[in-house]
Design a protein around this nucleic acid. Structure first.
Lengths: 125, 125
DNA sequence: TTGCTAATGATAATGCATTATCATTAATGA
DNA sequence: TCATTAATGATAATGCATTATCATTAGCAA
């Protein structure tokens, strides 16, 4: 991607503004407001380009399609609301979980996904 | 599944003996020792039957195909070795992670996946 | 403004895990 | 042992997210 297109800008803007990981389809839905003619193929093309540029990264939850968020290079986790199915970043972390592993196993990294009810869905709705 | 076939027995036996979640393909590979003619279609059929019978459950890691293990109804987590890619059960659990969530979010459940080097791969190999 | 060509939009093609199909095999009750 | 029919094996079909294709559009350097 050498040229700055309206589509590229819209897609990056939508991801940056959302503040949470978005599915390709969500990116399309949101960016269509900015560029009505936007195509899903273009979304995928730009998501791939943005990833190789190191501007965004993919977030994969078990059994779900990848979501995309800004690359921040800080260790964090995720929360998924069971009602609206949206995924949110979680900055807190319990730290090293070596103690959880059976003896002889070396823990190098971990992933934590919280499931529950998000703030909006919890507010009498 | 109303009849007890050699295939059914072999598939359940392999899963029970492995002591860790297995991919459908791993089940085929291991059970083929017991029933050489075993087909992948039969593996899928029996995995589905065993699940609806409540004997096994599926374990899904981000971006990976489902694995299958005995249904034990006890809360536990998983460890994946980055070298051999095998997945192991982890009984330890840090407990309620409500404190990790942003305020207003209610945590109802969580999932933890540890990544690292398993005991076997760590023993000079 | 113009020309070049990268990027887009629309849609067909792909990859791949899983499921359906169907002739054949084998488990079970009589 | 036999008959019934559920289950199997081999393989074609499916579903679906993602990618490729290609004619058209639109950045951008001159």
């Amino acid at each position: 991607m050498e040229r700055k297109t309206r589509q590229y800008e819209a897609i990056l803007d939508v991801i940056a503004t959302a503040g949470r990981p978005l599915l390709a389809q969500e990116v399309l839905d949101l960016a269509t407001c900015h560029v009505p003619s936007l195509s899903l193929a273009t979304v995928y093309r730009n998501l791939k380009a943005l990833q190789s540029e190191g501007r965004i990264k993919s977030v994969v939850l078990p059994g779900q399609n990848p979501r995309y968020e800004l690359e921040v290079h800080t260790h964090h986790h995720y929360f998924q609301c069971r009602q609206c199915e949206r995924v949110f970043d979680v900055d807190a972390c319990p730290g090293n979980l070596q103690m959880m592993a059976p003896s002889g196993f070396r823990v190098e990294d971990h992933e934590i996904i919280l499931y529950g009810c998000c703030k909006e869905c919890g507010d009498g709705r």
